[in-house]
């Protein structure tokens, strides 16, 4: 078998195996559901209840899309990426694969597609909710840049998951981080509390966080307000952070503890 043909077969089989693992692992699925679908369903449900009470929708879903996106992307990046990777390292699965001709880059490359599909689907749902059908003008104006912000945010938070999963050795430690980081991100990114509430120096500090680049930019685009960073700069920063975290993850990745 030629080397390139073999590499193709290894890529295909490993990507399939990684996808099967994700789809057949109930814990990963629960993490994904809690992070995105359940949260979304909760906001839709409350919005509908309030609409019945007050006669009109208060726009709760649209007003919290940034928060929902952040939690959904972090659930994929942490709960469905970093946690399984570290657990596989702890169990010895990565050690087993590390003794075969499969390289670190190939392994990570085949790990990502299943997660990317889920993230793209989440982006699609969020984009549909942000630019509802019928609002033709709004769609034509905002869908493309909004979609780009969502995709870059998703890629960046997936890369964060790979960076965390690259080296950690203990699954309990990464699970704690998977609970802690979304809470910190919620508070610090403007998803829950507007950044304007924080004192000036703190706000500047929070604006330096990648999660803030995403949420603040997305929320500003939704509200058709001025984003805290120019749109192009925010996209460039998110893209750079994604590339840097991916590169660091590939460099730091360890097969065993």
């Amino acid at each position: 078998m030629g080397r390139s043909r073999r590499a193709g077969a290894a890529l295909r089989e490993l990507a399939l195996a990684q996808a099967r693992m994700l789809l057949r692992d109930p814990r990963a699925f629960v993490a994904l559901l809690l992070g995105f679908a359940v949260l979304l369903a909760m906001f839709i449900g409350v919005d509908m209840l309030l609409a019945v009470s007050f006669g009109a929708s208060p726009g709760l879903v649209r007003g919290n899309l940034g928060l929902i996106a952040l939690m959904g992307f972090l659930a994929v990046g942490l709960g469905a990426t970093a946690v399984p990777l570290v657990t596989q390292r702890e169990d010895g699965l990565l050690r087993q694969i590390g003794t075969t001709p499969v390289g670190r880059g190939v392994f990570l490359l085949t790990h990502a597609p299943a997660r990317a599909v889920i993230l793209v689907a989440e982006c699609g749902v969020l984009l549909m909710l942000a630019t509802p059908p019928g609002a033709v003008d709004a769609v034509s104006v905002t869908a493309a840049p909004l979609g780009l912000t969502l995709l870059l945010g998703a890629a960046m938070l997936l890369a964060l998951g790979y960076l965390l999963g690259a080296r950690l050795a203990r699954s309990d430690a990464v699970r704690h981080l998977a609970y802690l980081i979304p809470m910190l991100a919620l508070v610090s990114s403007g998803a829950l509390l507007p950044l304007e509430l924080f004192p000036g120096p703190v706000r500047i500090l929070l604006l330096a966080l990648p999660t803030t680049w995403f949420v603040a930019t997305f929320d500003a685009q939704l509200a058709e307000a001025d984003p805290p960073l120019p749109l192009g700069a925010a996209w460039a920063l998110m893209a750079a952070a994604t590339v840097l975290m991916w590169a660091a993850a590939a460099k730091l990745f360890r097969w065993h503890r």
């Binding site: 195996a17 099967r20 693992m21 057949r24 692992d25 596989q88 169990d91 010895g92 699965l93 050690r95 087993q96 003794t99």
Partner: peptide, 14 residues
């Protein structure tokens, strides 16, 4: 060279 490490595991759902 093939190796069967002591603390080896496989994809449990495959």
């Amino acid at each position: 060279v093939s190796v069967q490490p002591q603390a080896a595991a496989l994809f449990p759902t495959l």
